[in-house]
Design a protein around this nucleic acid. Structure first.
Length: 468
RNA sequence: GGCGCGGUAGCCAAGUGGUAAGGCAGAGGUCUGCAAAACCUUCAUCCACCGGUUCGAAUCCGGUCCGCGCCUCCA
């Protein structure tokens, strides 16, 4: 079955046909490193991770670029307030960002270009746009893209200029522009920029926000590439502007498939730094959450649906993940037993993988994919109960789970809860007590261990210790 | 004013013309010394509301109500 994605450009689900067979070139809008990213931001990065892993699961080689916006109004303001050079200021948040990616088990992209490392490419692109007549140099040395010269402007968001509601920002705009909707490619130096500037043919200044994505995607992915993603709030103006710049400069199609994820909500409202209603990953971990639970919560809702974040969802995630972990533990134990497995095993495994795959292929329908996974868990558990899933059958089931988890990134089949010697000793003590049918003592030990964070489960094969 | 998204069980969430996946929580049961885990049974005669189309609609069409987003900071 072919991969299908909802393309924001056409507002339809379309079959994914890569430009180069067997390969997917992907540009994913990354963070502006002026602060810790919040989990709304991470919803987008997790959606992109799911996309990436799904492409890989489908057998495609992925070349992913995620930009780091390390020069813009907010980073400059932050650095000034902190009284440190821009690069020092942004380094902190770049490092935090990568640490958070690891916490969430997000697969690394092939390239993480920083805007400040690509100023020459941006200047070259701006120059091309001027040369081709799509941009104007203002008296102050700023350069603006003139949307009047690009008739297709507005295609992504269906906006018509005459129907736009003028906002405060536009009305108060002091820049010299032909039209209110024109946007800056290059911003002339102003005092507030402090030591942040680069020389350009138009004088000192810095790049506009949008130009970095056009310049860097071109450098790493080519003039035309397969997929561009971001949060829905980036559709306008950011992505619309990218299309205008890139297509005007290159005279060819910029991106074939645009995928946008919906917002993360909290208490029914969009989570945003500007609204102040946000949680960072660090906030949640401080409250006892862990990376894979948060990953599960943020991945569990289809990317085009608004996701209302709640602590209840985190608690539910813990239980669902425990079910998967326990299943893996049972399979590993069953693996050690020899004997024939039920004839149904191969079929169950095939159904699990094809169902999982079919869900993801259909515009990343994670709910359908997880439904297939949990059906497999139930059916396989039933066979495990009946002793019909052992040895090689269990090995095959574990292998299928591992393949599925290459996409999900949440199961921890390799996890060996290192049992501290003291805990192990007390567990042995309980075992002895049980053997002697001294259940009072056995239960006392079990309760004591529980309070220390360890759960003892008695199975036909002996005790099993689980970290709570 | 323009553009767009959504309203499915206690909570989360699929399903977009053929009679409601899955997860969490709950109830009863099997297993167990007791638990835990697992399994079984149960948990929406119904998909915001009102009309319409159809043999048949949560799914299509029209309307109403409610919630959310974008319209140059925003994932």
């Amino acid at each position: 079955m072919a991969l299908r994605f909802f393309n924001s450009l056409t507002r339809r689900v379309e079959d994914f046909v890569p430009l180069t067979a067997g390969e997917a070139r992907l540009y994913t809008c990354g963070p502006t490193v002026y602060n810790f990213a919040h989990i709304g931001n991470f919803r987008a990065y997790l959606f992109e991770d799911l996309l990436r892993r799904t492409l890989e699961y489908a057998g495609l080689r992925v070349i992913q670029v995620m930009n780091l916006t390390d020069v813009d109004d907010k980073t400059i303001r932050g650095a000034r307030q902190a009284g440190v050079p821009l690069a020092d200021y942004t380094r902190t948040y770049k490092e935090a960002f990568f640490e958070d990616l690891r916490t969430l088990a997000i697969e690394p992209a092939e390239h993480y270009p920083a805007a400040t490392d690509h100023i020459p490419e941006m200047i070259a692109l701006v120059r091309t746009l001027i040369d081709k007549g799509f941009a104007n140099v203002a008296d102050d040395g700023s350069v603006y893209f003139s949307i009047a010269r690009f008739p297709r402007y507005g295609q992504l968001v269906n906006l018509r200029r005459e129907q736009m509601r003028p906002t405060e920002r536009v009305r108060s705009d002091e820049y010299v522009k032909d039209a209110a909707a024109d946007f800056a490619l290059w911003k002339a130096y102003s005092e507030e920029d402090g030591a942040v500037f680069w020389d350009s043919p138009w004088g000192r200044g810095r790049p506009g926000w949008h130009i970095e994505c056009s310049a860097m995607s071109m450098r790493y992915l080519g003039r035309t590439f397969d997929i561009h993603t971001g949060g829905i709030d980036n559709m306008f103006p950011h992505h619309e502007n990218e299309i205008a710049q890139s297509e005007a400069a290159n005279g060819c199609r910029f991106v074939n498939y645009w995928l946008h994820c919906a917002h993360l909500m909290v208490d029914g409202e969009k989570m945003a730094k500007s609204a102040g209603n946000f949680y960072t990953l660090r906030d949640l971990i401080g409250r006892g959450g862990n990376g894979r639970e948060i990953r599960w919560v943020l991945l569990g809702t289809h990317y085009r649906q608004p996701l209302n974040f709640s602590f209840q969802a985190c608690r539910d995630a813990k239980a669902a993940l425990q079910r998967l972990d326990d299943f893996v533990v049972r399979l590993r134990e069953a693996q050690a037993r020899s004997g024939p497995s039920d004839a149904a095993v191969a079929g169950l495994i095939a159904d699990a993988e094809s169902g999982f795959r079919a869900g993801l292929d259909d515009d990343l329908n994670i709910s359908e994919a997880l439904g297939a996974l949990f059906n497999f868990v139930r059916d396989a558990n039933r066979l495990l109960d009946a002793g019909g899933l052992v040895g090689e059958g269990a090995t095959a089931a574990l292998a299928a789970l591992a393949r599925i988890d290459r996409v999900l990134g949440v199961i921890e089949p390799g996890r060996q809860d290192d049992v501290p010697p003291g805990v192990a000793a007390r567990a042995r003590e309980r075992q002895e007590a049980r053997k002697a049918r001294d259940f009072k003592r056995a239960d006392a030990i079990r309760e004591a261990l529980r309070l220390d964070g360890w759960l003892i489960e008695d199975t036909p094969g002996g005790q099993r210790l689980k970290r709570l």
